[in-house]
């Protein structure tokens, strides 16, 4: 028996919208830790890791140890679009061997209750082990600013060079029509903490990434006012959006390398 009640149902809607362009189908794992997912895009360039901790749910029951539920994200998105933004979402499933999951949507006033049953699928998921890493640079900045930069640069070029120095974090691209550079300096003298840009740098780092993926990651912007970008010269970048009181969604992207 699995039963998860999420008062802030809009969080789940936003999470799925941020994933569905990169992943077609994925196993959601339910364990005592929480509701989680790890999935790679089909070309094995980007990986998404989601955790919604069990204590972030109003009610969390998962009796079956680790219980994977394979879902087609396009179908899940269709169903979650039927939930109102203020609805409470409850996810129910009988457990391993059962091939359906039920989503129940309750309006805040309890006047309307809907349930949608969705077929589960068997998915051979490939799970990558990601060790804890020491990063050369960790930058926290407003998520809307990061999204704006990725969108702006993708009208000029296909790749972005992200460089962190003492001066700040620089995003550069070049294309047929010209070049673009955007530098964000550390800025902690802001009225609201979420507007700050904070740079922790052990050593300068510069890496090149496909902008198409970065732009997809920014679909998670509605989940958090800030984004954390962690870079090391010999590792994929980690772009993390914290999900208030509940967990995170992390996007890992392999760099472009010199041939």
């Amino acid at each position: 028996m699995l039963e998860l009640r999420l008062v802030q149902g809009s969080l789940l809607k936003k999470v799925i919208e941020s994933l569905k362009d990169l992943v077609n189908d994925a196993n959601f794992d339910c364990s005592s830790t929480g509701f989680s997912l790890q999935a790679m895009d089909s070309s094995h360039v980007a990986l998404m890791s989601l955790l919604l901790r069990s204590d972030g749910f109003e009610h969390y029951r998962c009796d079956h140890g680790n219980f994977p539920m394979g879902m087609k994200l396009e179908n899940l998105s269709k169903i979650l679009k039927c939930a109102g933004n203020d609805d409470i979402i409850t996810i129910k499933a009988d457990g391993p061997g059962n091939d359906t999951v039920t989503f129940m949507f309750e309006s805040p006033s309890q006047e309307k209750i809907a349930d949608y049953e969705m077929k589960l699928m068997d998915i051979d998921s490939e799970h990558l082990g990601i060790p804890e890493a020491e990063f050369h640079a960790i930058v926290r900045m407003p998520s809307s600013e990061f999204a704006r930069i990725c969108k702006d640069l993708s009208s000029i070029g296909d790749t972005v060079v992200i460089s962190v120095t003492k001066e700040g974090i620089k995003f550069s691209t070049k294309g047929d029509i010209g070049t673009a550079n955007v530098v964000c300096r550390q800025n902690t003298t802001v009225d609201k903490p979420e507007d700050a840009t904070i740079i922790e740098m052990q050593q300068p780092v510069s890496l090149t990434f496909a902008l198409r993926y970065m732009n997809s990651f920014t679909k998670a912007t509605p989940l958090s006012n800030t984004v954390t970008i962690s870079l090391s010269s010999d590792l994929p970048v980690v772009v993390e959006y914290k999900i208030a009181e509940m967990g995170y969604i992390r996007f890992y992207l392999a760099p472009k390398i010199e041939e």
Binding site: S43, H127, G129
Partner: peptide
């Protein structure tokens, strides 16, 4: 020219 690296070259399958 740049080549897109794969995640498989950084992380191991479990």
């Amino acid at each position: 020219p740049e080549m897109q690296a794969s995640l498989n070259s950084f992380y191991l399958f479990l």
